[in-house]
Structure formats: structure tokens, C-alpha cells
């Protein structure tokens, strides 16, 4: 375990399983550092996506599953009874593997979250649109066509729009599940560049779509295998000097 200066999220002994007894996560404990990019990686079925979705309670939508353990955000249990789930999801944004613009224009996509939260003031919404799109490195490309359908954008632009859409809520934490899996190398580079710029203000957790990408973006790296956290380290130490045999096998391409 790396020394944590400033843990934003504490994941404490989290076990998650479906009702048929199939465990997805087993006793996972880890602290996520604020203002850094933490990478969750591992082969398919390692539980990394599930863990990501537990952090903003998106798995609440899945029926027939159980979770034990605790997840603390700024020291507070996000699964405490009576906690405000929409409010949590505003603080913990999520970007999915496939960009999925909501029906409507570019502008409407960005203002969707703030409007649901009750923001009505046009001037404020305008500011949100410009700030979010700028942060997601998309403003210059779309500022003249904010009222065109979001689906008219290219795949890479759509993914940055989805990032902007999450940023519009001014979250503390941004979760990204293979955000570049559907993108070409140039768009991928742009999204990664965006992440580096966001790191200063946000706590970011990324599931990369390749080991190479993990190496490029990681401040901290967590390796998962079959629902267990195998190794957790600073920067790319995991890749250069893995302590666990299974990590080494995976990063050197012996399986996965």
C-alpha cells in the first residue's frame, strides 16, 4: 500500500456478490488519493468496473446483488441509510466506455445535470456550458454549433462531451470506465491530455483500456484479479517492478 497523503475515498473491506452466490469483489480495501489519477486495471471479470460503479452507487440499479463493507467519501459513508443518492452522483461523476449523448443538442447535454439539480438561470447555465466544454477541451471545436444535435459530433468529440456533461455538475470525483475504448489514437491522446489537466482540481479514477494507457496516465495503480486487489502502488512501479507474480504475469502479457 502506498502512503496516502490525502485520501479522498476510503474503500474498506468491500465484498460484492450476486444472489446466486457468485462473488464479484472480495474484501477489497484501498484509499484513493485526492487530485491524482488512480488507475484500476486487470483482466475482464476482475471486478474493477463493479468497484467503480459502487463508488457512485450506480449498482443500486442492479437487482439481486449484495454488498458488504464500507465506502467513505470525505470520511462519510455513502451507503449510510438515508443518504441522498442523486446528490452523491452529482459529486461523483461517471464517464462510460461508449459515449452516449442524451437526445438533444450539445448545449442540452451539458445543462442536463445542472437543470435536474434545479439551476434555471440562463446566464449561469451559459457559464456552465462554456466552463465545462473548455475543461473537456471541446469548447473551441463546438462553440459555434452548440445548438446542433450532439450525435452530429465524432466519436472522440462525443466522449469529451460526456466528460463535459459530468464536469458541468462540478463533481469532486470523476470515474471513467475505459473512456477511450471506442476511440482512435488521436482522440485517445486528446482525452488523456484532458485528464492530465483535470487532475489538478478533481480526484480521478480511470479504468484504462490497455496496459500501455495505464502506464501513461497513472499516478497510482491498482491491479485486480478475479475480484481481489492484488497489488496497489505509486505511479508505474507496478509495471517496472511488480511485487506479485500474478501482476508480473499480466503486465508482461503472459495472460489477459
Amino acid at each position: 500500500m502506498p502512503e496516502q497523503q490525502n485520501p479522498k475515498i476510503n474503500i474498506q473491506d468491500v465484498t460484492y456478490e450476486y444472489d446466486d452466490g457468485k462473488p464479484i469483489l472480495r474484501h477489497v480495501t484501498l484509499d484513493v488519493t485526492a487530485h491524482a489519477i488512480t488507475v484500476f486495471f486487470g483482466p475482464a471479470g476482475s471486478g474493477k468496473t463493479t468497484l467503480l460503479r459502487l463508488i457512485n452507487r450506480l449498482n443500486d440499479l442492479v437487482e439481486g446483488s449484495r454488498m458488504s463493507g464500507k465506502i467513505l467519501l470525505d470520511g462519510r459513508d455513502i451507503y449510510a441509510p438515508g443518504s441522498n443518492v442523486p446528490e452523491l452522483r452529482r459529486r461523483v461523476g461517471m464517464v462510460f466506455a461508449l459515449p452516449l449523448p442524451l437526445p438533444g443538442t450539445i448545449r442540452e447535454n451539458v445543462t442536463y445535470g445542472p437543470q435536474l439539480a434545479g439551476v434555471r438561470d440562463r446566464v449561469r447555465l451559459e457559464e456552465v456550458v462554456e466552463r465545462s466544454l473548455t475543461q473537456a477541451a471541446l469548447w473551441d471545436e463546438v462553440k459555434d454549433r452548440l445548438d446542433t444535435p450532439a450525435t452530429s459530433l465524432s466519436g472522440g468529440q462525443q466522449q469529451r462531451l460526456c466528460i463535459a456533461r459530468s464536469l458541468a455538475l462540478k463533481p469532486d470525483v470523476l470515474l471513467l470506465d475505459e473512456p477511450t475504448s471506442g476511440l482512435d489514437p488521436i482522440s485517445t491522446a486528446k482525452v488523456e491530455e484532458t485528464l492530465f489537466q483535470l487532475r489538478e482540481h478533481y480526484t480521478i479514477i480511470v479504468i484504462p483500456h490497455s496496459v500501455q494507457q495505464a502506464g501513461r496516465v497513472a499516478d497510482y495503480t491498482a491491479f485486480f484479479l478475479m475480484g481481489e486487489l492484488i497489488e496497489y502502488g505509486t505511479g508505474t512501479a507496478l509495471f517496472t517492478s511488480p511485487r506479485d507474480r500474478r501482476t508480473e504475469d499480466y503486465v508482461t502479457g503472459r495472460f489477459g
Binding site: R89, L102, Y112, L116, A117, S166
Partner: peptide, 16 residues
Amino acid sequence: TEFRTVSASLGGTRWQ
């Protein structure tokens, strides 16, 4: 379903 998930992830209630 993904549309519902996206809306929820942006702080929307189920009805929203």
C-alpha cells in the same frame, strides 16, 4: 437501459 444509467449518473432521479 444505458440512457437511464446516464441520467442517473448525472444526479437524476428515476422519474427525471
